[in-house]
Computed example of a mutant assay.
Amino acid sequence: MRLLVVGGCGLVGSMVLPHLAATHGIRVLDLAEPAAPVSGVDYHAGDLHDVDLVATLAAGVDSLVFMAMGPAADWGSPANARAHLDVAVPGLYATLTGVHRAGVRHLVYTSSMSVYRYPLEGIEPAPGERRVDDGRLGHYPDESVPPDGDDFYGLAKRLGEEVCRTATVARGMDAICLRLCFPTADDSWPKDGTAMQRAISTSARDVAAAIEAALARRGTGFDVYSISGDGDERTMSLAKAKRELGWAPRDNTATA
């Protein structure tokens, strides 16, 4: 396919672009220059709020892959939260306006399982115990449960999903939202960190495979899928992704 990847130079984009570029023609729009350009990828520096620029770059494109997000620096500060919300709502809305003008009717949005509260919050300590991350794994709800994440990042991703949902109604687009879990470069997977972070981290090649599966999902309107390296489903159900996308992680954290 011919893809417009918005945010292709960011954390997730830079991991998965080499995999996607192996089989697709890719045009990237990003504020940043690529740290390690992928051969054959057509890079463009620019602002995703620029509807005319987006429409120009989307000409002849089969699908939009939206991976843009706010910066990591000063994570959680008021300015940082504002940047994430700006990308997820007015930025995404402007991008969808531009691609729709160009005739694009399909998009893949990289959301996050952060749309739900961290599941360890649901494990109550015994009387007299402090709440600590002691390696116990909570369990995320499945896709049938409305999101309830209330931190700035989870809220930004929740609102981004709603912008995508609106595009399916108002503009007749197909929008596939992938709720990713700690995308990690292939050579450093699984992710270092807490027991839960390690358990749900997803290799870059599995994230790319999920995007590939979502690109083939057409005529369904709006939908969401949990995507994780937790192939044994200790922390969440991957049944919907397996059933409807034909996707399951090849790199399983349970056996890593």
Results as ranks from 00 to 15, higher is better:
34 P>L: 07
29 L>Y: 00
30 D>R: 02
27 R>I: 05
49 H>R: 15
22 A>H: 03
21 A>R: 08
44 H>T: 14
34 P>K: 09
28 V>C: 06
48 L>A: 11
21 A>G: 01
40 G>Q: 09
22 A>P: 04
35 A>M: 08
44 H>V: 11
47 D>W: 14
44 H>K: 07
51 V>S: 13
41 V>T: 01
37 P>Q: 01
22 A>G: 04
35 A>R: 11
37 P>T: 01
46 G>M: 06
49 H>T: 15
30 D>F: 03
27 R>G: 09
22 A>L: 11
31 L>E: 06
38 V>Y: 04
39 S>G: 13
29 L>C: 07
27 R>D: 00
32 A>C: 02
23 T>S: 14
25 G>W: 00
48 L>M: 15
45 A>H: 13
22 A>Y: 09
24 H>L: 01
23 T>Q: 13
46 G>V: 04
33 E>F: 00
42 D>L: 03
25 G>D: 14
32 A>D: 13
37 P>S: 10
42 D>R: 14
23 T>V: 08
48 L>G: 12
41 V>C: 07
35 A>H: 05
23 T>M: 10
39 S>N: 05
27 R>P: 00
28 V>M: 07
47 D>P: 06
47 D>Y: 11
30 D>Q: 06
21 A>N: 06
43 Y>R: 12
29 L>M: 04
37 P>M: 10
32 A>I: 00
26 I>N: 10
23 T>E: 15
28 V>G: 01
32 A>R: 15
35 A>T: 08
25 G>M: 11
41 V>S: 09
28 V>A: 02
45 A>Y: 02
27 R>L: 04
38 V>H: 10
46 G>P: 03
35 A>K: 12
25 G>F: 01
30 D>E: 03
49 H>F: 14
43 Y>C: 07
24 H>N: 14
36 A>F: 00
26 I>K: 07
40 G>K: 10
22 A>R: 15
42 D>N: 05
32 A>G: 01
37 P>I: 02
39 S>V: 11
35 A>Y: 00
42 D>W: 00
29 L>W: 00
44 H>F: 13
37 P>A: 03
21 A>M: 09
